[in-house]
């Protein structure tokens, strides 16, 4: 009952370990839900890629793999800082938790800033579906594959499907990064008030799970969208 009085243990749990088990299982189930959520998109990607392999390779090689690669490194770095924040939360070291949460936040914002530049380039190049979409198959590809004018015309249409999938996947992922940043701010306040300790740290731990998931999605997105088929030229 002591833990109930301290306010850390909610009224309907009888022990800290029960509460922690519930929070942790809840978060894992939420992750399962997220996997199925993204899973629908990955399915759409796989189906369309299998149906139009060449078209997707050509459209995919338009993406900026350098910026995508830098962003991959940025997110991996953010996962490292997040893992450290969780570690320090388990040890109850207030200043270190806050420090590493801020690092994670900064990496996340870097990711979104880079993403912003990538997106604006798409608007300039008219590769945003439904917004003056105007894709041209590069001359070297036409030559290499001896494409007929009809084939070029369909390829330019299929490119719109690729960019639609690209924006849907990276957009949904970017939204998750943004939500993650909001959650970091939401976590920093209790961390500063020294709320997390050896007994109670599941908010940081569970957010860590979320953050690694967001990172992991990108680890799949980067090769699927940016790298597969770069050798087309």
């Amino acid at each position: 009952m002591g833990s109930h009085a301290s306010g850390v243990l909610a009224h309907h749990f009888h022990s800290i370990s029960q509460q922690r088990a519930a929070h942790s299982l809840g978060m894992w189930l939420f992750m399962a839900q997220e996997i199925m959520f993204f899973g629908g998109l990955f399915t759409a990607y796989v189906v369309y890629r299998a149906l139009n392999p060449l078209d997707f390779a050509v459209a995919s090689s338009e993406l900026d793999a350098v910026l995508g690669g830098v962003n991959t490194l940025v997110l991996i770095a953010s996962s490292v800082t997040m893992a450290l924040a969780v570690k320090y939360a388990q040890l109850g070291k207030k200043n270190m938790i806050v420090l590493f949460l801020i690092f994670t936040f900064l990496f996340a914002s870097t990711f979104l800033v880079i993403k912003y530049f990538e997106y604006s380039a798409k608007f300039e190049h008219h590769t945003v579906p439904g917004y003056d979409f105007d894709f041209h198959v590069p001359a070297d590809v036409i030559q290499k594959f001896e494409l007929s004018p009809e084939r070029i015309a369909t390829m330019e249409k299929r490119a719109e499907v690729f960019f639609s999938i690209y924006f849907a996947m990276t957009g949904l992922h970017g939204l998750h990064v943004f939500i993650g940043m909001c959650l970091i701010i939401w976590l920093i306040f209790p961390a500063m008030k020294n709320k997390f300790n050896v007994d109670y740290h599941s908010p940081v731990e569970n957010f860590g799970l979320y953050w690694h998931f967001v990172d992991l999605v990108w680890i799949f997105l980067f090769p699927l969208l940016y790298l597969l088929g770069r050798n087309i030229h």
């Binding site: 997220e34 993204f38 629908g40 369309y48 149906l51 579906p129 249409k157 639609s164 999938i165 849907a168």
Partner: peptide
Amino acid sequence: PVVAITILLVGVERMFGLAIFDPALG
């Protein structure tokens, strides 16, 4: 979640003109 993402895709197709299920675009 799978029907959620499916409906979301129909939504972005309707609202932003993304070509996901539109046969005219493949």
